[in-house]
Design a protein around this nucleic acid. Structure first.
Length: 303
DNA sequence: AAGTCGACCAACCGCGTTATT
DNA sequence: CAATAACGCGGTTGGTCGACT
């Protein structure tokens, strides 16, 4: 028992030091990126093989874009691929030179949070009477953010429920002839009495989707949504769980759109280019909201 | 100047898959 | 063929930094 505890203590965790990195790099130089467990068994490092591998893959591997903000193109690519593959970050990362699955994952979740916050703020402004609990008294505070769910109440339209938010990302400018691909099918909200979480879609801007449960399904829902017919149709299409079945099988080897090819030999990039000014790297994710996307939302008033 | 908040990122954990014995 | 080890992936957590008040 004591022996086991001692062994446990031997395992180092936490941030890596430069010396450890050096040892790891030397090991990879000598044996290649494998046999991670042997690093510890040889006494080179007090790290688990798992930890070593992760360090190599995420930080030490050559040609990583460490610290570089995602470009608009990369963002679009992630959106596209996420819609096609779902949360298969490792797979998505293969299409993004110099990006790791962790990068993509972090980028995506950060994005989702941002959207959730925007939605939350907007909804707070517009639905204070519907759910006063989630307005001023419920500020989003860093890690204690309580995600929200937009639920649909047939009599009141969208309202806030303190649960999860299903946020979708989209890129309208990236949908090549989406109407062609979908044909004339106009999927309306009443068609979808389904849970929408984990139903990815990709159409340019970020659209916030209400998560409908079976219990909320209602034939009159469509009339209740305060979006323009155009936005409503877009939402409906995006929400449809079989939308991509219409376009093609999700696991089809044929990409839905002209996606970049997987990239296995990333080109060299500057090592650290964090904190890019907003002028250089504009946030693209809001640019293409349908004009009325937040029409039902009162503008946020400055204090 | 200090405090708060949001964004970002590194690293860990759990679990599933694959390879080896 | 089963058991075990190694590896890989996705989800989550916690720390740090910069912007803002």
């Amino acid at each position: 028992m004591r022996k086991m505890e001692a062994r446990k203590e031997e395992i180092k965790k936490g941030p890596w030091k430069a010396e450890e990195d050096e040892v790891l790099i030397n090991h990879v130089k000598r044996y290649g990126p494998r046999d991670w467990s042997s690093i510890r068994s040889k006494g080179l490092l007090q790290r688990t093989g798992k930890s070593c591998r992760l360090r190599w893959v995420n930080k030490l591997r050559p040609n990583l874009k460490n610290g570089c903000k995602f470009s608009a193109d990369e963002e679009r690519t992630v959106i596209e691929l996420q819609s096609e593959f779902g949360n298969k970050w490792a797979r998505i990362a293969t299409y993004l030179p110099g990006r790791t699955d962790n990068d993509v994952k972090n980028f995506w979740s950060s994005r989702q949070k941002r959207l959730a916050r925007i939605l939350h703020n907007s909804s707070d402004a517009s639905s204070s009477s519907f759910n006063s609990k989630s307005s001023s008294s419920h500020r989003l505070k860093g890690k204690n953010v309580k995600p929200i769910r937009q639920s649909f109440n047939p009599s009141q339209g969208f309202g806030l429920v303190e649960e999860e938010v299903t946020v979708a990302s989209s890129c309208s400018q990236m949908v090549p002839n989406s109407s062609d691909q979908v044909g004339d099918e106009t999927l309306t909200l009443p068609d979808m009495g389904v849970k929408l979480e984990h139903q990815p879609f990709a159409f340019g801007t970020d659209l916030v989707l209400a998560e409908f449960s079976d219990s909320h399904s209602d034939a009159n829902q469509q009339e209740m949504i305060p979006f323009s017919p155009e936005s409503r149709e877009l939402l409906a299409r995006l929400d449809d769980p079989f939308y991509y079945d219409i376009l093609g099988p999700a696991d089809s080897s044929e990409p839905l759109f002209a996606l970049p090819q997987p990239f296995f030999e990333p080109s060299p990039v500057p090592r650290r280019c964090r904190h890019v000014s907003k002028d250089e790297e504009p946030d693209v994710f809001l640019d293409d909201f349908p004009a009325d996307m937040f029409d039902q939302v009162d503008p946020i008033r400055s204090p």
